[in-house]
Design a protein around this nucleic acid. Structure first.
Length: 549
RNA sequence: GACUCCGUAGCUCAGCAGGUAGAGCAGCGGCCUUUUAAGCCGUUGGUCGAGCGUUCGAAUCGCUCCGGAGUCACCA
């Protein structure tokens, strides 16, 4: 546009203030650095390797920004400022100032945080500092912070850490702020942050690209306050579960992640190798078998918060590594555990003040007693047919009539399971215990006390159509247990890949005598999803598994 | 694993009847001592995810690959 002229701006045309005086003392070699994802600060700067420089010096705007920040860093040092002091003593957090305004007005406070907004107006400036509690605006005047203080401040950028001392006041636009008398540089960043602005709750240029958020969770946490809240809730949930079990006399234990054999669930494992032993190990898919060995060993109540690994697909409900809670108690059965689980989850909900959860437009009520529904009753309710007397072929016909592919379901039990998964479970929105599963799909559960040879004492808790809990009266008959394992192994040999090895060590332990035991497994990530009303598991895992770049 | 969609400046995006790129914000210089998506003037910055092909010419068309998202399959 015209140089110095009658600016004819039709639409609101605005420019940042700029200076074309970028100093390129850092000719970043190789201009291949363009994305947040692959960047890292270690890169050389001020590297005038006069080698092959020619015309090839590429200056992306990111490199320019970083060079400018390095230059500011240098200037800070030149001014005798340590840009990375070892500590800083503050006395107030941002949120405290707002919640105790009456008491603090006019009082001097010291805060520290990351600069999240910056408005400079010559000899005075406003900025917002963000600490873990939230944001507070600071007002700096050159006449108050001094010439040198203001010089330092001018070398600050969005994202840098600053300590501010000053008195609490309200600006004429009504925002509670700190009138700075002294500032302290706490940390200078050299990489620019994404810029997110907001006004009246409306966010401009939100940082919401999922890939960038997951790969750069630090940025996500800085820029999206609700994300911090999700992980605070996650911590509260885990802490609650731990305390609940502790208070009920359970012993927290740790069992191996590296296992010579895997078991306790149906899943493909990750394989790794120990060099000194020259032996392959599996990352655990469940901790069930080890925990039961502890019950056999004489601990009567044990639990473990267990990171499990399953070499399966990734989707909104599944991450290859996930967190499970398992607990086992001697001398109780699955009915006891059902009451226990319901109480635990309801108290958890109350402790979070979240007894009603909004789940995809439906309201889940966690405060009422959870429904209990035997598997055949559930099927009858959903299908309008009593399948109790059906044999395998009639079941298969029924499944086909309902449009199910029964190719993979070999046994009677698997057919039942397939029917449940497809036709019943998705409809279990309100918390529902499904009881008494087919034996064929429950190799670790005790035969049902009713005497029905096809059923076991097992329950699963469904909420919002998804499984949250799986529990049994644990099988402790060593001969039966061995037969079940062998049946599973045979089944898999017929099928394919998933050849579950028979765990002789576990069987030997059971052969030594195992008390009657109730056992429970809980999907912790799903609990977090539920209570934070997140539909994607990646949003409740800080660093979800992604393909590396 | 299958299918659909996406990948353009640090950020959010526009450009795609093919003619080697634009905006806002951020950044830089100037002015501005209560501003708030501050404002005004000036300005830097991109081998348009990668490669190959069609074409006189491709960010725009085709193929392959790499990443991501969504749906489904498997599993918790």
């Amino acid at each position: 546009m015209g140089e110095s002229d009658p600016v004819l701006c039709l639409p609101p045309l605005q420019h940042g203030q700029g200076s074309s005086h970028q100093r390129r003392n850092g000719k970043c070699p190789g201009g291949d650095e363009r994305e947040y994802r692959s960047l890292h600060p270690g890169l050389s700067h001020e590297s005038n390797t006069g080698k092959g420089e020619g015309m090839s010096e590429t200056h992306t705007s990111l490199q320019q920004s970083m060079n400018v920040r390095r230059e500011k860093l240098r200037k800070l040092r030149e001014l005798g400022v340590n840009p990375y002091p070892v500590a800083f003593s503050r006395d107030t957090q941002a949120a405290d100032i707002k919640s105790n305004y009456e008491a603090l007005e006019g009082q001097s406070v010291t805060v520290a945080g990351r600069i999240m907004s910056l408005r400079r107006m010559g000899k005075a400036s406003f900025c917002h500092l963000q600490d873990e509690s939230g944001r507070i605006q600071c007002y700096l005047r050159r006449d108050d912070v001094g010439e040198t203080g203001y010089e330092q401040f001018k070398l600050m950028d969005l994202g840098d850490f600053l300590g501010v001392t000053g008195y609490v006041f309200t600006t004429k636009t009504g925002e509670i702020s700190i009138h700075a008398s002294e500032i302290t540089v706490l940390s200078k960043g050299i990489r620019p942050l994404p810029v997110v602005k907001e006004k009246d709750g409306e966010v401009f240029d939100p940082f919401e690209d999922k890939e960038l958020r997951y790969r750069n969770r630090h940025l996500d946490l800085i820029l999206n306050p609700e994300v911090r809240e999700v992980f605070r809730t996650r911590a509260r949930i885990i802490s609650f579960l731990r305390h609940y079990l502790d208070e009920h006399g359970f012993l927290e234990v740790e069992t191996p992640v590296l296992q010579p054999l895997y078991g306790g669930a149906n899943a493909r494992p990750f394989v790794t190798h120990h060099n000194a032993l020259d032996q392959d190990f599996y990352l655990r898919i469940a901790d069930e078998l080890y925990l039961k060995r502890l019950i056999i060993g004489g601990f009567e109540k044990v639990y473990e918060l267990s990171k499990n690994f399953r070499n399966e697909g990734i989707d909104r409900n599944h991450n290859p590594e996930f967190t499970a809670l398992e607990f086992y108690q001697a001398y109780v059965d699955y009915e006891y555990m059902m009451d226990f689980v319901q109480d635990m989850i309801q108290r958890l909900a109350r402790s979070l003040d979240k007894t009603r959860v909004n789940w995809g437009g439906m309201v889940i009520d966690l405060d009422r007693p959870f429904r209990r529904l035997a598997i055949f009753d559930a099927l009858e309710e959903a299908l309008g047919v009593d399948v109790r007397q059906f044999d395998e072929s009639r079941l298969r016909d029924l499944a086909r009539d309902r449009g199910l592919d029964t190719g993979k379901a070999v046994t009677y039990g698997q057919l039942l399971d397939e029917l449940m998964k497809r036709l019943v479970e998705p409809g279990l929105v309100q918390p529902t215990f499904i009881l008494d599963h087919p034996k064929a799909i429950s190799p670790l559960a005790k035969p049902h006390r009713s005497g029905n040879p096809e059923l076991v004492e097992r329950f699963e808790l469904f909420i919002g159509g998804a499984e949250f809990v799986n529990a049994f009266s644990e099988l402790n008959d060593p001969l039966d247990q061995r037969e079940r394992f062998e049946a599973q192994a045979a089944l898999r040999r017929d099928g394919d890949e998933e050849d579950h090895p028979v765990d002789e060590n576990f069987l030997e332990a059971v052969e030594c005598g195992m008390p009657p035991t109730g056992g429970v497994g809980v999907g912790v990530d799903r609990l977090v999803m539920l209570f934070t009303e997140n539909r994607w598991i990646k949003d409740v895992i800080l660093f979800p598994t992604l393909r590396s770049q």
